[in-house]
Simulated assay, not measured.
Amino acid sequence: MKTSFYNVNAESFYNDTVAVDLSPLYDLFLPLLAPSGHIIDAGCGSGRDSLYFLQHGFAVSAFDASERLVEKASALTGLDVELNTFEHFRTEKLADGIWACASLLHVASNALPAAFTNLSKNLKDGGYLYCSFKYGNDDVERGGRYFTNADESRLTMFIKHTRLHMVKTWITADARPDRQDEKWLNAILVKGNRNEP
């Protein structure tokens, strides 16, 4: 995962994303979790979502792979945001939910199964993981950034050898006003064996 883009462009990225309203996504994810449950904000970027979760009574752990965004998210939220990656992050307190909004798409497609496997190790049995990808089935590099796109079948392949299973997928337009034409795959996954109720 390349972080140089986000270190160089941290200020503009922060300003472009920190005020984006994702209430419709929060409203689908948060009711699945226990009140005041523990959420890991995986690839937290500006810290926008972590701040929202804190304001709504959740315990939050957050990490990002960009040093500059770790600094900015820490300042915004008051959290000790950790500099780490999807493949290596570990917590002693397993999460009720993991939030990976528009973040896993920057992991190379051949590394995504390992990223999902590691994230699932940080999630309680019966816990939920939200993730989103630009809709498609290819890998692209644009403007100095790498994107792994995903549709439903590609996401299924990424999680095939984990204990994560799809609960729900849906398509949305980009929440930023200037990018309404971009489509996103949203997914809620649950951790558990296939034969579990």
Rank of each mutant, 00 (worst) to 15 (best):
N9M: 14
N15D: 05
L185I: 14
N118M: 07
A95G: 06
Y128Q: 04
G143T: 03
D80Q: 12
E71K: 05
I159A: 10
L155Q: 04
A187M: 09
K72P: 01
A108Q: 14
T3W: 06
V60F: 01
F58H: 14
D80L: 01
C131K: 03
L79Y: 06
D41V: 05
S66G: 11
A10G: 06
V60E: 07
D80H: 08
H38E: 08
L119K: 05
L32G: 04
D96T: 12
A73V: 04
K160T: 02
A42Q: 02
V18H: 12
N195I: 14
G136S: 10
Y130N: 03
E11L: 11
V167G: 11
D64H: 08
D49M: 02
D49W: 07
S66I: 05
D21G: 10
R179I: 01
D49V: 15
G136Y: 01
D96N: 12
P197W: 02
T91D: 02
N186V: 00
E152P: 07
I159Q: 00
L104K: 05
E141I: 05
S50E: 02
K72R: 11
R163H: 12
G192M: 14
L51W: 11
W184L: 09
E152W: 00
K183V: 00
C44K: 01
A175K: 03
A111G: 01
S61W: 00
Y146K: 13
R194H: 14
L30R: 15
I98S: 10
S50K: 11
R48T: 06
R48H: 06
F89Q: 04
S36Y: 08
Y135R: 04
H165Q: 15
A42D: 08
T117R: 14
Y6S: 04
L30Y: 12
I188N: 15
N15P: 03
K124V: 13
E141S: 06
G136C: 10
N110E: 15
F5E: 11
A187V: 00
T169Q: 13
H56S: 09
A175L: 06
R176M: 05
K183W: 10
D49G: 10
F53I: 13
L33Q: 11
A34I: 15
T169I: 10
L69I: 08
K183I: 02
E71A: 06
E196P: 00
A59F: 04
P31H: 09
